[in-house]
């Protein structure tokens, strides 16, 4: 099952052009809607399915999806949690590793459930690997699916792929993809930068 609607094949923006908008506000909300419909198609009334957002950046997306499912698609109840993976990262004691933990809040067991892990961008796959390790501490799920807004499919360092993705972006390694949200950045959009520095 691979729901790819759109793929963007890009070379990184040149230094002249520091950023490029790859999803604007309108497309953004359409993409979220589509992802929600795909989830309903797959998991019906979510009676045995939970949604878990990966801290910190996956949570904005998981929150949006959770709200849309409850408010717009009238799902009566979904188990929803957020998971911090700081203590499970494999780059501990290596330069550049973020050691600032966020809240974990999962007040249910994932034992024998379908889990939808949510993150904004799937890049090397290492965050997802850490999340899978962390998830084990809450029971043994029947199945774990991954939902990401952006899938950078040519930059993977581990055999991990997303089941549901908003957009596939093929960009060179040093390029940086950033997801911005209306409530924190003023507008929903996905941006592509020539490198991480340009995004700051």
């Amino acid at each position: 099952m691979d729901f790819v609607i759109s793929t963007i094949n890009l070379s990184a923006p040149t230094s002249m052009e520091k950023q490029r908008i790859i999803i604007g506000p309108e497309r953004f909300s359409l993409t979220i809607e589509r992802l929600c419909h795909q989830l309903v198609e797959e998991f019906d009334d979510f009676s045995n399915t939970c949604i878990i957002g990966i801290q910190p950046r996956g949570v904005a997306l998981s929150e949006r999806i959770y709200r849309h499912l409850i408010d717009q698609l009238n799902i009566p109840h979904i188990d929803y949690g957020v998971l911090d993976i700081t203590f499970y990262r494999d780059d501990f004691r290596r330069p550049g590793a973020s050691m600032h933990a966020s809240v974990t809040s999962i007040d249910f067991l994932v034992e024998k459930k379908n889990v939808i892990l949510v993150d904004d961008v799937l890049y090397t796959g290492r965050t997802v690997q850490a999340a899978l390790t962390a998830l084990n501490h809450y029971g043994r799920p029947d199945k774990v699916e991954l939902l990401t807004l952006v899938d950078r499919r040519f930059n993977r360092e581990l055999p991990i792929r997303s089941t549901f993705s908003g957009i596939k972006v093929d960009a060179v390694d040093q390029a940086y993809v950033k997801v911005e949200w209306a409530n924190t950045h003023g507008e929903d959009r996905v941006l592509l930068f020539s490198d991480k520095k340009a995004a700051q």
Partner: peptide, 19 residues
């Protein structure tokens, strides 16, 4: 701030992290 997060960890059924 970090201790608050660890307090949540030590109240889980599995209290161990691999850090």
């Amino acid at each position: 701030h970090t201790a608050t997060n660890f307090k949540e960890v030590i109240n889980r059924p599995i209290k161990k992290v691999p850090s």
